[in-house]
Design a protein around this nucleic acid. Sequence first.
DNA 1: AATCCCATTTGATCCAGGTCAATTTCAGTC
DNA 2: GACTGAAATTGACCTGGATCAAATGGGATT
Lengths: 246, 246
Amino acid sequence: MTVDTLAHVSCADCPIRHRAVCARCEEDELAALDGIKYYRSYEAGQSIIWSGDVMNFVGSVVSGIATLTQTMEDGRTQMVGLLLPSDFVGRPGRSGAAYNVVATTDLVMCCFRKKPFEDLMARTPHIAQRLLEMTLDELDAAREWMLVLGRKTAREKIASLLTIIARRDASLTPQGVVNTLTFDLPLTREAMADYLGLTLETVSRQMSALKKDGVITLEGKRRIHVPNMARLFEEAGDDSDGGFLS
Amino acid sequence: MTVDTLAHVSCADCPIRHRAVCARCEEDELAALDGIKYYRSYEAGQSIIWSGDVMNFVGSVVSGIATLTQTMEDGRTQMVGLLLPSDFVGRPGRSGAAYNVVATTDLVMCCFRKKPFEDLMARTPHIAQRLLEMTLDELDAAREWMLVLGRKTAREKIASLLTIIARRDASLTPQGVVNTLTFDLPLTREAMADYLGLTLETVSRQMSALKKDGVITLEGKRRIHVPNMARLFEEAGDDSDGGFLS
DNA sequence: AATCCCATTTGATCCAGGTCAATTTCAGTC
DNA sequence: GACTGAAATTGACCTGGATCAAATGGGATT
């Protein structure tokens, strides 16, 4: 494969269909670029980018999870994004980061220094277009989340978060159309609270309430079973399942 | 000027410095494109794009204001963005819109049909890069707003909104560094509420409170005077003024 | 198996902002 | 200058989620 195909739009034979770029294929295609790309490893809890840092690289997550958070001086924090394998961070041509990026698990990123990456983009317009697509997807997701933060009740917020994780998880291990699903919740109650603009106590209470009402069942603390996805979407107040069901 | 320079990054002699692309210069540069671009006019209150619509065009606002809103079936709405002159809407290569776009004033847009625009992007990579820059700016703004929606108090939310409008207004009519400012608020209380995830009553109460505390004064309903911008930034809970002061 | 350390759950109380309802203000319009 | 209707203000009350505090659970270490 050549550099020109880095930015292919779909990746039919890859199980990671929901991501904008399939990390595995990307790996293959970027093999042509040895010497330009390099790898960085982070431990769980380690800060990757601190708000205001100069961003002299662009990176794609290979494995692990990182969170994007905004913080106020008094400690209030809001998670504004989740970075999963194949997601990009960094901004070619911009010097100050607007938020913190922290690894929540051990994490490996595939990086490019700013200048080589810019050259690469100039040479292969497909890459810039692919990045534009991905960024527009993220913008849509951010705007959808604004509705969650601004207008939904605590219970709806929890249900919304669960549908997002479930959807993502289901597309990672596709098994046709299912109305029942079991998945891991890779977040602490506190992280969920930071994502949803709630306190961890409220998150815990609402999780208990959803359990009591039979919307979910818990196996251990982190493993969630949803007997009826349609019910969960309903609880989330979504007007559609985003094509998940049927 | 040539098409190649459409995507110039800065526009030193243009008063509209805060926008990603200067509408005026863009107009000039796009003059070379007559026959590809065309104009659309909308009346105040008219819907430009309805959630789910096929987006077969890309458009830049020439004059007027439009809002992007998300809606739930029960009527709860959240404004997720504001379109001002020079802002882009539409998504080359994507068919379903994620939200509603409604003109709040009479509005004129400069549009491109999807296909010619894609061709244009392919021919002139600068345009794709410029759009990427703009989209990343919007993503940053959306993420900043998520902190406002998720973690700020009603008073801080109002102050944050005023800060944004004031900043935008100040850059439209630059007058050096000022610590005092008067500007129009182009939104009803209800629109402010939809933006901030509050009710219009709470907006009204907090406006009154800010007035009583001397943070702002009102001339009529819509004209706002801020005697001390530093104080307003403080009320917004922002850790910085974003380079507005000093 | 006992200990320690967190994450989580649960309870009790409080309060910011929502809800419902009644005025007031003001830009048009005749 | 009086009339009208939409926008805005203000008041009274209620409630969802925050806050403060205590108890429980479960995984790692020894």
